Computed example of a mutant assay.
Amino acid sequence: MASKQIKMPKGRPLTIVQVISNYPNAQPVPSIKGGTEKVVYELTEELVRRGHHVALFAARGSRSSARLIAYPKGLKHEQIHQYVLQHMPTGTQIIHDHTFRSALGRRQLPCPSVCTVHLPVKRHGKNPVFVSKRARQLMGGGKGFYVYNGINTHEYEFSSEKRGYLLFMGRIIRNKGVLQAIQVAERTGKRLLIAGPIKAPVFFRQEIQKRIQRNPNIRYVGAVGGKQKQELLKYAECLLFPTLWEEPFGLVMVEAMACGTPVLALKNGSVPEVLSGFPQLICKSIEQMARKVQQKNYPPPAKLRLYVAQRFTNKQMTDKYENLYREIIRRQAKEKKASKA
Rank of each mutant, 00 (worst) to 15 (best):
Q295I: 02
T36R: 07
K320P: 07
E45H: 07
A181H: 01
Y235V: 01
T15N: 10
L119C: 11
C111A: 11
L306E: 15
V131D: 07
G164Y: 07
Q209Y: 08
V29Q: 08
E37V: 03
V252R: 01
I286N: 06
H53S: 12
R60C: 13
S160W: 12
K229E: 01
S62E: 07
S65K: 15
K227Q: 14
R211E: 06
L14T: 00
K38D: 14
K4S: 12
F249T: 02
R67T: 15
P89V: 07
R331G: 07
F158C: 04
N323E: 15
I198M: 00
E42Q: 14
P28A: 01
E45K: 04
T44Y: 00
R123C: 13
L85S: 06
A26R: 13
R174D: 12
Q5M: 12
T90E: 11
D319A: 11
K340N: 06
L232Y: 00
N25W: 13
I16C: 06
A223L: 03
I286P: 02
H154S: 15
R305H: 04
Q137T: 13
C115W: 14
R326A: 05
R305F: 01
K210G: 09
L43S: 04
Y146D: 09
E247R: 05
E45I: 05
L281A: 03
V178M: 09
